[in-house]
């Protein structure tokens, strides 16, 4: 339900669909394998090369989209209020996006990065696939370290062709690692969108009393007088957001920040509106 709400709030599609009714356009050749339809064999090519090739068409290869959701420990913040963690927010965002994409007829795959491992759900299209996705998401629990870098090559090997990759994370990994991973994803010529999900406490640091601060990814704990550190902490975290934004511009990727106390649908719809305007302008050119 929530996913639907998110998706319906975002009235505009994520991308301009390449599905164009019955006007079928040739896309590429693929060697014939037993079980392929014989009507699709390119006989002209057979005449030239004496081999069987299957013709593949656009309508068959609608946009492939993969949503990469960070399921590390840090995403479980704040873990004292059930249902309000960044991960929950991320899940809703994922589901909403998946619904939107699937309802456009695209195929959606899902990757959960958790504890340096990859939970993979291959990309498919169709309404039924959404149910499977939802089930998959409901079961997922955040845990351990993020470590994009460890799973990156595994991930890349699964993105077979040029795809739209949406990364949802708090990006609290070490800067260098995050930067490197995002660049790599982009250099494989995938289209990249990354959504940063942050809790308001992380953005405002409202703590007052002397407290132990414990990391969610087993970084240990530290006793701090929060007011003493507030200024320098805010400087660091704002600096990191600006850096991510700059990185987005550099990689021609979209960066969008989400606060868990704000409605995901609103931010998403305004993002999509902005994106569609930009792409329409680009096409017009």
């Amino acid at each position: 339900m929530k996913a639907r709400e998110v998706a319906e709030g975002a009235l505009i599609g994520l991308h301009h669909s390449r599905h164009r009714g019955s006007s079928i356009e040739f896309s590429e050749h693929k060697p014939y394998a037993p079980g392929d339809e014989i009507r699709l064999i390119d006989w002209k090519l057979f005449a030239k090369s004496d081999r069987f090739f299957i013709k593949q068409f656009e309508d068959e290869t609608r946009i492939q989209c993969y949503i990469v959701l960070d399921a590390s420990g840090s995403m479980s913040y704040p873990d004292d209020k059930p249902g309000s963690s960044k991960f929950e927010y991320g899940k809703i965002l994922t589901a909403g996006l998946a619904y939107l994409l699937l309802s456009q007829g695209d195929s959606v795959g899902l990757a959960l990065i958790r504890n340096g491992e990859l939970d993979w759900m291959p990309g498919r299209s169709g309404e039924r696939h959404f149910t499977a996705l939802a089930e998959f998401l409901v079961k997922a629990q955040p845990q351990g370290e993020t470590s994009f870098e460890k799973v990156l090559f595994d991930l890349l090997s699964r993105f077979k062709k040029k795809s739209l990759i949406i990364v949802i994370s708090d990006f609290f990994d070490p800067e260098m690692e995050v930067e490197k991973s995002l660049k790599l994803l982009r250099h494989r010529n995938h289209e990249l969108v990354f959504f940063q999900v942050l809790a308001p406490e992380e953005l405002e640091f409202p703590f007052k009393n002397l407290s132990w601060f414990e990391g969610l990814e087993s970084e240990g704990r530290i006793l701090l007088e929060p007011q003493q550190l507030r200024k320098s902490y805010l400087k660091l975290i704002n600096g990191w957001q600006e850096k991510l934004e700059r990185l987005g511009q550099e990689l021609l990727a979209d960066y969008q920040r989400f606060r868990t106390d704000e409605k995901a649908s609103q931010i998403l719809s305004s993002y999509l509106l902005r994106r569609s305007l930009i792409s329409r302008r680009a096409r017009a050119r």
């Binding site: 704040p78 992380e202 009393n209 601060f213 414990e214 969610l216 902490y233």
Partner: peptide, 15 residues
């Protein structure tokens, strides 16, 4: 002192 489990501990440690 209470224990606060905190996501952005990296920035806290840094500062």
């Amino acid at each position: 002192a209470k224990t606060i489990r905190f996501g952005a501990i990296r920035f806290l440690l840094q500062s």
